[in-house]
Design a protein around this nucleic acid. Structure first.
Lengths: 128, 128, 128, 128
DNA sequence: GTGGTCTAGACCACG
DNA sequence: GTGGTCTAGACCACA
């Protein structure tokens, strides 16, 4: 399984799940049409509660990244993953927060660029 | 006062405070040596609890952005704002999360670059 | 065949079936006395389980829209399609729910009227 | 309290809650800025579980009808209650389903109009 | 087998 | 006091 969660992390488990699934989609470890593990199976695999997985899947479905059918959850086609303006503003705000935090700690914009390059490369190849 | 907080926002007030103070430092609205308003004064100005302001100041002090003296809190010199490797990894992780979120919603790396430029420019000039 | 079902939809298949058959009756694609495809045939045509088709036919029969004979199901005469008061209340309740939902999202009663007109026209002409 | 739920109804409790709260907003029993009862208080009042109320509140917040602050949930200003095109299609589809159901049971379009008028009037005056 | 709903009860963060 | 998260376990609808 391509997902791992840290029980001790201060980050909510369902958030860790959504992040990792998004990452898997960006890396194309998961592609449009792929089935996700059933809620109960994934929960038991990870040793977390069913409801926690369910919440993660629901959020991703709301965001248009997953589709819910009667047979379970599936990665949705690219077409469904668009964002509206409000959501873009949200993302920009989050980007700004991170940016400010990096800059305030004496890093230059150049460093940000480098990190972005690193991250982008890492997202292109390799599995999780 | 260069700080505004939204009482109705679901974002924790102390988080709003740390974010805005960091932004003020990046924008050089606040520079090394500047005094911050006393905990009591700021709390009363903003209509929030003293403990809340205190928490924000403490966090910023922990991060090396403020210095606590007998007379109150001041913006610390640049030299104190360095990060260790662990904190850098933290920031990279946060940057990655935002990046993945942007990319997974069909935006290109180019868009990320553009947003970064916009944000950087906005951080250079103007007040909060 | 005038029926199509979406296997991937989260809406129950038997519900999709009843909806579409009702629509066909309103559009007079199906009129009193018409035979419906046999349960087996329809199930195989649509690639769904026999029980599912059966459930749909049963519900429609319960509602007085179909008649079950030894030879199979047929569209029942208009006279059988009446509703009792309880069912009318049910329908009104459902209408109210939709209405409230439309109004609460800032649409006017005029919009509701327009939508109804559109829908009514669409139901008059054309096939499914 | 202006809300009542039927434990025995086949309709999910959280759905009953969202419906009734929407109705209260349309009737202006609840207006922009009003506080909603806290999750736990409402749950105990109604004799249902906290999570059930929470789910209802969350859905309404997603729809833009409520706002979540640190002090609880509040009815949001009209401006936030807009719908996008996709949501409108959804509502039209639901309206169509109800309409078909009414028409297929021998009611005329005129009846639908009458019911709508009744319902609209009822939504204008009086409390729940 | 799949997800959906609900309950009961616990612990945490915030202010 | 507020909501958020998580667990454990139950029952139901659908196919």
């Amino acid at each position: 399984m391509f997902l791992e969660i840290e029980q001790t992390s201060p980050i909510a488990i369902y958030t860790q799940l959504t992040s990792q699934i998004k990452k898997a989609i960006v890396k194309e470890t998961l592609v449009a049409g792929d089935d996700l593990p059933s809620v109960r199976v994934l929960a038991s695999d990870l040793g977390v509660n069913m409801h926690t997985v369910n919440k993660a899947y629901n959020i991703l479905t709301e965001e248009g990244l997953l589709l819910k059918s009667k047979k379970g959850y599936v990665v949705s086609p690219k077409i469904n993953r668009q964002t509206d303006e409000e959501q873009e503003d949200e993302m920009k705000k989050r980007l700004e927060d991170v940016l400010v935090d990096i800059l305030v700690h004496n890093h230059s914009e150049k460093t940000v660029q480098e990190w972005l390059s690193e991250l982008t490369v890492a997202l292109r190849k390799g599995d999780n």
